[in-house]
Design a protein around this nucleic acid. Sequence first.
DNA 1: TTTAGACTTGACTTATTTAGGTCAAATCTA
DNA 2: TAGATTTGACCTAAATAAGTCAAGTCTAAA
Lengths: 101, 101
Amino acid sequence: MTLGQKIKELRESSGMFQRELASKLEIGDGFLSKVESNQKTLKREHLLTVSKIFNYPFSELNALWIGTKLYEIVKDEQEGFNALKVAEEQLSYEKTENARN
Amino acid sequence: MTLGQKIKELRESSGMFQRELASKLEIGDGFLSKVESNQKTLKREHLLTVSKIFNYPFSELNALWIGTKLYEIVKDEQEGFNALKVAEEQLSYEKTENARN
DNA sequence: TTTAGACTTGACTTATTTAGGTCAAATCTA
DNA sequence: TAGATTTGACCTAAATAAGTCAAGTCTAAA
């Protein structure tokens, strides 16, 4: 599930048109269309608005937002999967380091 | 293990000084110092040179390079870990999609 | 079968960020 | 006190973010 897919899903399942949602977010509908197909990214502040409109947890939108960004970086990389593992490892190392103090 | 750590490790275990390695890479030693502490990143082409100098697999350096970059993105994020999972999921979804065709 | 409304796409823009450094001064280490 | 390393301030070019807008396409229904 990408952020674009999720937004489209939320919008459609609430019977809203792109134009409506776009206007709530104060962006053009062309731009929203691209957001839903992950050709463009929403500003992070917009995520909060989306969260409120559809009453959907911000943290999940946030995870999708960052995750989709990470995916854009690794998707054409041979070492993409390993790179994700490296990042994960560094992250959990940092976590245990901080826990130690 | 970060890329900076790995480079430092390779350099030190071959008894080389920063100045020497820096000159082989045609960068300043101040810059290399920052690379080793992950404050700056090497150009990707430099990775190939490093790989040759220390006879260390390029693919691993590459994974560390991308991984450290990903880590920089997620390290201060609450949803960092989940975001990595999202990216991983998207990546494996894409893989199976491609395999289907 | 045409036409309206929803959506997609391509070309373009401008402002901000990031990449990839340099250099000199400060610090650390034997 | 020399040589190795680190740090901070600074720089420029290139990339990315965050859009707009008009033209094109797709789909139901009159």
